[in-house]
Nucleic acid binder design. Structure first.
Length: 466
RNA sequence: GGCGGCAUAGCCAAGCGGUAAGGCGCGGGUCUGCAAAACCCUUAUCCCCGGUUCGAUUCCGGGUGUCGCCUCCA
């Protein structure tokens, strides 16, 4: 079985062959930390985290680098508006980013380099581009000479001449050509700045990624990923910068996730429909959000709406319920699975086939539901062997973990003693066939958020809404 | 104008040459003291028109619709 990934560069699914056996070097463009992240930022974080988990599941050692852009125009604007320094704002939202993404069960990156901590490498990189004639300084700015890079446009599949119409020169810029882009921007009075051979200023947006990839992962990496909007110009420019200097491919595979829409509209500030993860996870279980994102193949657009999210609540709940019910039956079971089990292996194989196909999480999730169905059937019979139930539990645990979906929920394991007393009181009432009393107690508990379910193996409870 | 994606049941979403996975929802049933959970049954010929083929949702051509990139953007 071979893993295939869709490469934007070739517009084809290609067999993944790592540079170094057993290792994956991947770089995912991270956020500009001037605000809380929105769900559009969450998608690459979740899908590429899932890719990373899958690589690890398949035995690869993954070096996962994702940057923080902690200085740029938007941060400077935010700084002026709030009368806070750029680093203060950046630190605040880096912290918020890590919290949000942590709630979505995104594993920590191997490293999250910051632009401001990569300044020597950035400046050196620009210097070399000037030395080789790919860049030029002009009044304190430095620009990349786009037309000099012969492969320009190969990622976005655009010719330089087609791009020309969209390019423009802002007032105050001193570009030789409208297509050129900034590597270094001279500081205006009062702006945060760093010293450089071309005067005080700050890096352009694209150069930090080129410098960081080189610094942390090397001249050629396996995977470079980000949102589809980054194909042009961001990643195109990164290629121009890095490959002009290194004369080798910057990345073998370029992966891009599709965008999120809100009620079938583009999410944008002007429409006013931007949803922050910070707010969304107050309303929905963050894992439901993750689950929802993974129900769609990562390259396709996803529409967000309360209706769709509520469907996801139900669907994910089904998975959690079966897992919980398995645990309920296995409370006193300390044994093992039956060992090698053909059926469990067949689930695993189907899961791998799905994920091998460019991380088809939608199909991978359908395997989870098939396991759930079979496990539920096994659960129906009172004399199913615990070892079999345990096998179901294990395979569900193993595969859902690859997707970063935690089916176990620690918060459900603790029950107040008075609630326990009420459950016992109801059990006594049921034994005495005082069903009216039993039902009253059950209603009371339900209002307190505890839902009871009577099973042949005793009463089972879970937390519910209202 | 250049480049690209998408169009599958009420909704979401896989499949991509051999008459349609999965989930949510609806309806019917089973189990239950009643519920809940669960299980069973039920819910589609895949935007339209041509073409290739023994055979197309799946390939090719042409439409229509829709979304996106080309300017900061995940």
């Amino acid at each position: 079985m071979t893993l295939k990934v869709y490469n934007t560069l070739t517009r084809k699914k290609e067999v993944f062959v790592p540079i170094e056996k057993g290792k994956v070097r991947m770089y995912v463009c991270g956020p500009t930390v001037y605000n809380y992240i929105h769900i559009g930022n969450a998608r690459p974080a979740v899908v590429f985290d899932t890719a990373r988990r899958y690589f690890e599941f398949r035995g690869y050692n993954v070096n996962y680098v994702s940057n923080f852009t902690d200085v740029d125009d938007r941060l400077i604007h935010a700084s002026q508006e709030r009368h806070q320094s750029v680093p203060e704002i950046a630190n605040q939202f880096i912290k918020a980013f890590l919290a949000d993404v942590g709630a979505l069960n995104v594993k920590k990156a191997t490293i999250n380099p910051r632009a401001t901590e990569t300044m020597p490498e950035i400046i050196a990189f620009i210097g070399k581009l000037i030395d080789t004639g790919f860049a030029y300084a002009a009044d304190g700015d430095v620009y990349y000479r786009t037309r000099k890079f012969k492969d320009y446009g190969k990622l976005s599949h655009q010719s330089v001449d087609d791009l020309k119409s969209g390019a423009r020169i802002e007032i105050g810029e001193n570009k030789e050509d409208p297509l050129d882009f900034a590597l270094w921007k001279a500081a205006k009075p009062g702006e945060i700045k760093w010293a450089s051979p071309w005067g005080e200023g700050r890096p352009g947006w694209h150069i930090e990624c080129s410098a960081m990839v080189e610094k942390y992962l090397g001249e050629t990496i396996d995977i470079h990923a980000g949102g589809t909007d980054l194909v042009f110009p961001h990643h195109e420019n990164e290629i121009a910068q890095s490959e002009a200097l290194h004369h080798c491919a910057m990345a073998h595979y370029w992966l891009h996730n599709g965008h999120i829409q809100i009620n079938n509209e583009k999410m944008s500030k002007s429409i006013g429909n931007v949803i922050l993860v910070h707010d969304l996870i107050k309303k929905y279980d963050p894992l439901v959000v993750r689950f929802f994102i993974l129900t769609v193949q990562y390259r396709h657009p996803i529409n967000f709406s309360d209706e769709l999210l509520n469907d996801a609540v139900q669907a994910f709940g089904r998975l959690k319920t079966v897992f919980y019910n398995l645990d309920h039956r296995l409370k006193d079971f300390a044994g093992q699975t039956d060992g090698f089990d053909e059926k469990m292996e067949s689930y695993r194989v189907r899961f791998i086939e799905a994920m091998d196909d460019d991380f088809n999480t939608a199909n991978a999730i359908s395997v989870l539901f098939d396991i759930a169905k079979d496990a539920n059937i096994a659960l129906q019979s009172a004399d199913t062997k615990p070892a079999l139930l345990f096998s179901y539990r294990q395979i569900l645990f193993e595969l859902s973990d690859v997707l970063g979906l935690k089916l176990e929920d620690q918060t459900e394991s603790i029950l107040d003693s008075d609630v326990e007393a009420m459950i016992e009181k109801r059990e006594a009432a049921r034994r005495d066939k005082q069903f009216a009393l039993a039902d009253v107690i059950r209603d009371q508990l339900k209002k307190a958020g505890i839902v009871l379910e009577d099973t042949p193996q005793g009463v089972r409870w879970k937390r519910g809404r209202e």
